[in-house]
Design a protein around this nucleic acid. Sequence first.
DNA 1: GTTAAAAATGGAATTATTCTAATTACTGAT
DNA 2: ATCAGTAATTAGAATAATTCCATTTTTAAC
Lengths: 145, 145
Amino acid sequence: MAFSLSPSSKHTFAHSLREKGLRPTKQRACVYGVILDKRDHPTADDIFDRVKKHLPGTSFATVYNCLETLVGCGLVRQVNMDRSPTRYCPNLTPHAHFKCTQTGQIFDVQIDQDTLSKMHALIPKGFLAENIDLCFSGKGDSSTN
Amino acid sequence: MAFSLSPSSKHTFAHSLREKGLRPTKQRACVYGVILDKRDHPTADDIFDRVKKHLPGTSFATVYNCLETLVGCGLVRQVNMDRSPTRYCPNLTPHAHFKCTQTGQIFDVQIDQDTLSKMHALIPKGFLAENIDLCFSGKGDSSTN
DNA sequence: GTTAAAAATGGAATTATTCTAATTACTGAT
DNA sequence: ATCAGTAATTAGAATAATTCCATTTTTAAC
């Protein structure tokens, strides 16, 4: 059976897509669903595996298409750390990422408004930032292993 | 002829390598040289082309090997923005990068100590960051085109 | 000079991602 | 409801940055 989003997620989802004239298809809902469901910053590959459990016929291309669409609608964010596969994150609040070099795990790190402003203030006159990306890497919290 | 580093760069270069028991070969010097020479955040491909002008026999594998070595010695930094090819930067002071979405150009953006501290302060207890990466993207300064 | 270790080389292999052409599913107008 | 037109999905091929591997060359120490 298809993935079922919670009523509120389903609403945000359908609304965000329709705003851009796009259709809330079951594949898109499912991709969005698995990203919301387990917030472990999955790769396209992880997402493909999870989606197939719900919609076995789904192709890799579709997963990539859906991801691109969801990113374009602002429903999920892409997380790129060094050269490793792109990961996807449904947390839309201002936050940074911390990658544990030992486990590969990625953690969200909240950014307070003051620090965010200071970061914005770095940008020289004449530049207009549409995107900010802050990534840390190092040893993660051992208690979370 | 091989690339010639300025006396002070040559010293830093040889010193940093020898500290790790590595040899300051002409290929490594050349790769480092072209990165220092034109600080435009070149890709491995760009570097390969430039190195070949000085040392025509150089292979792609060597360029990658040298880059890995230089990064390992802390002589250059890798810059990864989204999925585009890795770029290399000899600026070792704390700085962020701004990528112009229109031209693809990458600009260095200095980070002051206060902002840097605030960014560090975001890291939760128990985590130890070895690396910080701050990237902006958006419209670059039109006066630089 | 000889020898052992390190580095460089060329080409093949890998892998995440994108592209392409063909099929299927919607949506809106009739 | 049906049809036409558009959007989305599919399978598989293609791409491109990077890494790997086996071999050759260079270097440094004795």
